[in-house]
């Protein structure tokens, strides 16, 4: 009987000791000394999630610590940015941002701005094209605009949600061409099926979401929203070259809370630059139609100022802010 008691004790003791071994060590050594949390603003399985996880996997060797993806979905990204804003500025909470860092902060649902973060680097961007069904009567964006001019309120443009980058792109296009369209906030699940089913004639979506249908011959792209043509679809013109001054990227990059030490930021820049060249990440990015185009800390902050101007302007045009 005594013996059995003892063996129980030993098991308990061993388990405790073993679990202590898994605990992060306390030490004052150089950053990073423990796993880094990588906050993803959208749900498990989406484009942002899959690319974020691949990037984290690619950057962890250079950083020297695991980068652990944590999904904080909700409120169009607002939940993640709020959590990130409230985190300690020690470099152990890193946010995987996107254009949503500009849209959520400007629309007024969260009490901070994109400038309340240190925006570490940009990984790349993708276009937000105007797409129609294969059998649509318009062959070019010009024809679509001409039709919309003659039939105000007839064209319905689907987007990913009011105030999202896709909505703002459509709003900009509407205002610069002086047409009148109906914006339908279809959301992530319904945007492509709605267009294929004919509920809306036109959609504005991030390129990766429509790419399978375009390659499969069910949909056509009329124009892309980026400054230059997309390498995957070089035959599709940009809105700018068609004479409509609309430039809007869906970018993705890295942000950390304001006040994070400069040497930590530099380490993150190096690690994520390396991560963006990782084979696994490149493979996903390539298949997702995402253009890897790295920008360091200063370049990214400058880029954000310019993008933010676009976002604010189109939010005003769309009547979402005053």
């Amino acid at each position: 009987m005594k013996k059995r008691n003892l063996s129980y004790l030993i098991i308990v003791a061993l388990t405790i000791v073993f679990s202590m071994g898994f605990m992060p060590q306390v030490s004052m050594a150089e950053y990073p000394t423990k796993p880094v949390s990588f906050l993803i603003p959208f749900g498990v399985g989406g484009s942002a999630d899959l690319m974020g996880r691949a990037l984290a996997a690619g950057a962890k060797d250079t950083l020297g610590q695991p980068i652990v993806p944590i999904n904080r979905p909700g409120a169009g990204g607002g939940i993640m940015y709020t959590a990130l804003n409230a985190s300690k500025a020690d470099g152990y909470s890193v946010g995987w941002n996107s254009t949503s860092i500009l849209t959520t902060t400007n629309i007024g649902n969260v009490p901070f701005k994109y400038t309340d973060f240190e925006n570490v680097c940009r990984i790349g961007y993708t276009a937000m094209p105007i797409a129609v069904r294969e059998d649509a009567p318009w062959n070019t964006l010009k024809e679509l605009i001409a039709y919309a001019k003659n039939n105000p309120g007839k064209i319905k443009i689907g987007n990913a949600g009011t105030g999202s980058g896709t909505h703002l792109t459509a709003v900009m296009l509407e205002k610069v061409t002086d047409i009148q369209v109906v914006h339908v906030p279809l959301g992530a699940k319904r945007r492509v099926p709605s267009c294929l089913g004919g509920e809306v004639q036109v959609i504005c979506v991030p390129l990766p979401e429509a790419a399978p249908q375009c390659l499969g011959g069910q949909m056509r792209l009329l124009a892309v929203s980026t400054a230059n043509r997309d390498p995957k679809f070089p035959e599709v013109p940009t809105m700018k070259e068609l004479g409509y001054p609309v430039v809007m990227d869906l970018f993705r990059g890295i942000s950390v809370p304001k006040g994070t030490p400069q040497n930590v930021i530099q380490k993150l820049v190096v690690a994520f630059e390396k991560g963006s060249q990782d084979e696994g990440f490149k493979k996903i990015a390539d298949k997702k139609g995402f253009n890897i185009s790295f920008q360091g800390h200063d370049a990214f902050e400058a880029y954000l100022i310019e993008q933010n101007k676009n976002v604010v302007e189109s939010l005003k045009l769309g009547g979402l802010i005053k």
Partner: peptide
């Protein structure tokens, strides 16, 4: 009690 609590936690 001890065994369950440690094993379950772990």
């Amino acid at each position: 009690v001890l065994l369950t609590s440690t094993l379950v936690t772990f």
